[in-house]
Design a protein around this nucleic acid. Structure first.
Lengths: 393, 393
DNA sequence: GCACTTTTGTCGAGCATTGGCATAAGTTGC
DNA sequence: GCAACTTATGCCAATGCTCGACAAAAGTGC
């Protein structure tokens, strides 16, 4: 059963003829035709008109049918939750957002998520069993394999809570859980940098974290805590950090630390949000503080560049969007401090996803699970939607 | 053709019966029997006696036949070259070593390598076409995909030299090229930590570098320079480095830097080798300097732990073998400076390969290529050794 | 030596895959 | 507008991989 191999070729969304698929897959034209029929039977592939004739009968084109099924992507932040319904190409169909504190606990937050997901499905005239997977990002360390958060600092009550199981119970489909920065990296890479196999995304907001994609694969590490930049020591700093150590990047360059720097300069700011506002207004003090923070982040990123050797670094998070100064500070130090060989073809860019890298990544996580060869082949053998006749023996 | 699937199951060296293979592969016993026959035909698998009877006819056991073919592993250091002939289980059969400076240039070094490889093959009564692959590690940045070194600092004349092509031309088989620290990590992980998917190996000698294995895969990064720890900045240091920056780890904790520290303490040492000797003699000054260097390395490794979240760190290289103090200094800082979640199940260990991690890794690189499903299936379709009859048409 | 157990080799049936061929559906030239 | 040509498609018999069954082989235990 190699139907999934043919389907994999169509995953990029490009339409192809049977002959093209035969050439790319190495199978015979007639075999490809059979698999295409199978895939059209479950709706995953649809004909999309004819190719231009090259002198004879025009070949019919086939492509992934994005609306065959839907997935749900969830981005849980410290104080908000976004639930999005998306099609199989990853395009959003509809979304809900709530201002909700993760500290309310898993059942409150996930209860709202489940309700919002069901409402979106109904509102779009879909059935719940058309949802083939759910992806969810949480603001803390997550053991991806088991779908449980592990000692998350800002998520009281979530430690080892079975997020995947709880949601699966209520939505009736596989649930993939990951850290929020990891899914942002995934979303950014898959949507904006599909040709780039080695990408690092840094999120700078109330905290600082990174998602690492290497060789096209999300790097989670042994316990799922890879990419934790926030508590790396910054050379030349001794600021005390809530983690107990001193000189941590987060204690120097995250939102609250920048606010503190500004207060030292005599500017009255209390929160990360006010820093963003001030920068937007063009305050020179804010610009200076952001540039200094950028330099500190750059100091740590220079190390990441030497260590991971990415070809793209994305700077994301509320503070990244606020001002060019953060980006400038980062670039300045990274290019100076990293090895020339590693920076030669390195690009440092802003997020191209307008703030929804998280949801995009959650959607990608869900889609890539649902359309993986194993899951797909199982679906083709025993289609999930029509109820199975009970076999007696 | 799923013969390679059956073979993959036997790759771990354990002997199995046909029934066991059928259960593990999901194929029928009769199909397994057919594939086993195919594999025995090319010699890759051999019967190794009968299993204990469980009351009936005892099942015959089959296992990977390590001596079916051979591979060559090459470790090129700054001033030495080792060439080893190994069987398919990775065990060395015979080896040659030469004191040779890489600065002599690629043709001098690789010429000796090719000669030594041919000599070893002949000496063992083998034919050259029994060599199925060559793995080689070089002391500098390598673009693995093309098999060429890229601007290697200590290898004049090697820049962009086609190492893989040059050797392939003379030895007639695929050549896999990688950085020396990368192959050390590979060698250490595959031989000593097969259950561990996330491992970092740090080599401390005249320079400092790291090889990163994550999710069981060697991480090379976009340009193959991943793991370059040597020029990461150490907090609190401003020592000038040959790379032009200051405070680099290599300028503080590598062999020459430790020698310099000792000279400041009034101890007369010139080279890395003398530091090792002094430590072996139990010099308290050497112990102190090594512990301090270990702390600096630990400072950087703490960051690596947060970033890639390995479950094992291996400390290797000449200075690691010299004294426990280096290891102690590293452990002390890593456990203090890394996040508790990342260090909870972290082990820091010495190399278990007695100094030949490099050759082991080179051998592994060669074997894993030669026995990969794609290469193997191609071999089974058109066996390389018996000359092919020319088909006329 | 006999009954019982388990593996092995062989063989026919089943199913995916293939390549060939007649047919369908366009284009090009007159 | 029609004939000649080109290219894709659907259908089909042949092929080859896979499976399950069965009889023979090779052990154990009494």
């Amino acid at each position: 059963m190699r139907t999934s191999e043919i389907f994999d070729l169509l995953r990029d969304g490009r339409a192809r003829t049977r002959s093209e698929l035969a050439r790319e897959s190495g199978l015979a034209r007639s075999s490809v035709a059979m698999h295409i029929d199978t895939l059209m039977g479950v709706g995953y592939v649809a004909p999309v008109g004819d190719a231009a004739s090259t002198g004879g009968r025009p070949a019919s084109l086939f492509a992934l049918n994005p609306s065959a099924r839907v997935v749900v992507g969830v981005d849980v932040g410290a104080t908000h939750v976004i639930v999005e319904l998306a099609d199989l190409s990853g395009d959003g169909i509809a979304a809900s957002r709530a201002e909700l504190d993760v500290a309310e606990g898993p059942e409150a937050v996930l209860g709202w998520v489940a309700g919002a997901a069901r409402a979106l499905v109904a509102q779009q005239g879909r059935e719940l069993d058309e949802v083939v997977a759910v992806g969810i990002g949480l603001p803390g360390p997550v053991e991806h394999a088991t779908g449980r958060p592990i000692s998350p600092p800002i998520m009281p009550g979530w430690h080892r809570f079975d997020v995947a199981g709880w949601l699966r119970e209520r939505l009736g489909c596989p649930v993939l859980v990951d850290n929020d920065v990891n899914i942002m990296a995934l979303g950014e890479q898959r949507t904006a940098w599909p040709e780039t196999a080695d990408l690092v995304l840094v999120k700078v907001a109330t905290g600082i974290g990174a998602g690492i994609i290497s060789g096209g694969r999300l790097q989670r590490g042994a316990r799922g805590t890879a990419g934790d930049l926030g508590h790396v020591r910054v050379p030349g700093s001794t600021a005390p950090c809530r983690c107990g150590n001193e000189g941590c990047l987060e204690a120097v360059a995250a939102g609250p630390a920048i606010a503190a720097r500004l207060r030292e300069l005599g500017v009255d700011v209390a929160s990360t949000g006010e820093v963003v506002e001030l920068a937007a207004q063009g305050s020179p003090e804010a610009a200076q503080a952001l540039r200094a923070a950028g330099r500190d982040i750059g100091e740590v990123l220079a190390m990441v560049v030497n260590l991971v050797n990415p070809s793209v670094i994305i700077v994301a998070g509320r503070l990244a969007g606020a001002a060019k100064e953060l980006h400038a500070g980062i670039s300045e130090v990274v290019y100076r401090r990293s090895l020339p060989l590693a920076t030669e073809h390195l690009q440092i860019a802003a997020s191209a996803t307008k703030g929804d890298a998280g949801v995009r990544g959650a959607v990608v996580l869900a889609i890539e699970h649902a359309l993986s060869p194993d899951v797909l082949d199982a679906e083709l053998v025993a289609p999930g939607r029509p109820p199975q006749p009970v076999v007696m023996r």
